[in-house]
């Protein structure tokens, strides 16, 4: 057995197992999402991937982020995606006609970017495995009241960026209404 994995199991037991299980679900669902030809199936796999990601957040003890991940992405945004796809009413033959553009150059670039990002992730995460497992599996101080831990900095230290984001969202809403309603 790998020493790292052994340490994780020894110290964090269930957490480590849950972490790797959620990671496997997330990655497998993400791959299936890309591979499925039926767009509705893709949406459902992406939802499962988001739920797996939320599971990873739970094992890292950031419940708030996990719940928001499910609530906003899986529960709201993906429902709208599904809605639009259903209303587009793509037929099977239309889907079959769609093929990836055969540009070898694009494939090469995508492969290079993929390996660079994997390399960077591995490089960045190596020191973390030398830390004690408790530190790896989330800060206990944050776990007590994760809402307060996020809310107070958000509304004091980061108030200006937060408000600017909300104005941006407002602009997007107004834009969407202006686009769909011809006569206001």
């Amino acid at each position: 057995m790998e020493p790292i994995f052994h340490d994780l199991l020894a110290a964090g037991g269930g957490h480590a197992v849950a972490f790797y299980a959620c990671s496997a679900v997330t990655i497998a669902a993400a791959i299936l999402m890309v591979m499925k030809k039926n767009p509705v199936a893709s949406v459902m796999w992406l939802v499962l991937s988001f739920i797996g990601l939320a599971g990873i957040y739970v094992t890292l003890q950031s419940y708030f982020i996990a719940v928001i991940q499910v609530l906003v992405y899986a529960g709201a945004i993906m429902v709208l995606f599904l809605f639009v796809i259903m209303l587009l009413n793509l037929r099977r033959e239309d889907i079959a006609k769609m093929e990836l553009p055969k540009v070898p150059f694009a494939g090469v670039i995508a492969a290079i970017l993929f390996f660079v990002s994997v390399f960077l992730v591995i490089k960045a995460s190596t020191p973390a495995f030398e830390k004690p497992v408790d530190a790896l599996l989330g800060e206990p101080a944050l776990a007590g009241d994760s809402v307060r831990a996020i809310g107070i900095p958000l509304f004091s230290q980061w108030l200006l960026p937060f408000e600017i984001t909300s104005v941006l969202l407002l602009a997007a809403i107004v834009g969407a209404v202006a686009l769909t309603k011809k006569k206001l």
Binding site: F64, V67, I68, V70, L71, A74, G75, A76, V79
Partner: peptide, 9 residues
């Protein structure tokens, strides 16, 4: 929030 997240599914 957990309840809302789950029931949104």
């Amino acid at each position: 929030l957990f309840i809302f997240a789950i029931s949104s599914l």
